[in-house]
């Protein structure tokens, strides 16, 4: 049986899709058969971040509506052969998703994959609810900022009450906190929430801290999941997070401000660490 993992946050723009792409790629690099599903119907982005936008023929809505078979819609990654992507539709809206349709897709994927990642849209409406409904585990992506923390708190409550596991009164969804866009310098200046504060409010195990890093934007624009940029701090932090997800005990890195950033480092922040 595959493990279903939802990548969620409540708030938009915190790094769900970046995280979905990075974690899915990281798991696949470890030899796990992994598929990542874009649930953001109408605002599809995952295919861009994964660099497969030119290979999209069918999407999740086509599969749900019986216009295409699942295998026709799945895009196999060319870099990592254990990785596949199921894109969202850009021309429909979230109402095109149905719980039965998603259930069938997840069941079918379960036979072939070890991990099914669900990249949730922002909000707590239909698309987000469907993305988390079937989850066994949740990666809650949070920025060190009060509104993001509160929205994550809200989504944790939703996970506890509206997921399939909650409805069927099974073991609760296993929750992981991933703090992204963490800037130790701004934390030190008091402009960002401290990691301890975020952990204290959300009170779930910490999977990782991804530092604010220019390599993320570059990775998005070139369609390469940032975890493949092994030189960058963000890529390394994601790699650590994947390791921890698989049970490794790794120390958290990149939590302190870099000492005296030189001109070179400021220009090429990712490269210098």
């Amino acid at each position: 049986m595959a493990q279903v993992i939802v990548v969620t946050s409540g708030k938009g723009g915190v790094g769900k899709t970046t995280t979905s792409a990075a974690v899915a790629t990281g798991l696949a690099q470890r030899g796990k058969k992994t598929v990542v599903i874009d649930f953001d119907v109408g605002l599809r982005n995952l295919d861009l971040i994964m660099g497969v936008e030119r290979r999209v023929v069918f999407d999740i809505v086509n599969v749900i509506q019986g216009e295409a078979r699942l295998n026709q819609a799945l895009i196999r990654d060319k870099r990592v052969d254990t990785l596949a992507i199921l894109p969202a539709s850009q021309t429909r809206d979230k109402d095109a998703l149905t719980r039965e349709g998603v259930s069938t897709i997840i069941e079918e994927l379960s036979a072939d994959f070890d991990y099914i990642l669900c990249d949730s849209p922002a909000g707590i409406e239909k698309g987000a609810l469907l993305a988390l409904y079937f989850a066994d585990q949740a990666i809650v992506v949070t920025n060190p900022e009060v509104s993001s923390v509160r929205d994550s708190d809200r989504i944790l409550g939703v996970l506890q009450s509206k997921s399939k596991r909650a409805e069927e009164k099974k073991d609760k969804v296993k929750e992981h906190l991933l703090v992204t866009r963490y800037d130790p310098n701004r934390v030190e200046r008091g402009e960002m929430l401290k990691l301890e504060d975020v952990r204290e409010i959300l009170a779930i195990p910490l999977l990782g801290v991804i530092p604010e890093n220019e390599s993320v934007l570059k990775a998005s624009n070139t369609g390469t999941p940032v975890i493949m940029d092994t030189e960058s701090v963000a890529g390394q932090a994601y790699k650590d997070a994947v390791g921890r997800f698989l049970g490794e005990d790794l120390p958290h890195r990149f939590l302190e401000p870099a000492k005296k950033p030189g001109l070179f480092q400021r220009l090429f922040g990712g490269r210098a660490a």
Partner: peptide
């Protein structure tokens, strides 16, 4: 015994 979260 669980945190009471925003919206609950």
């Amino acid at each position: 015994a669980e945190p009471v979260r925003s919206g609950q």
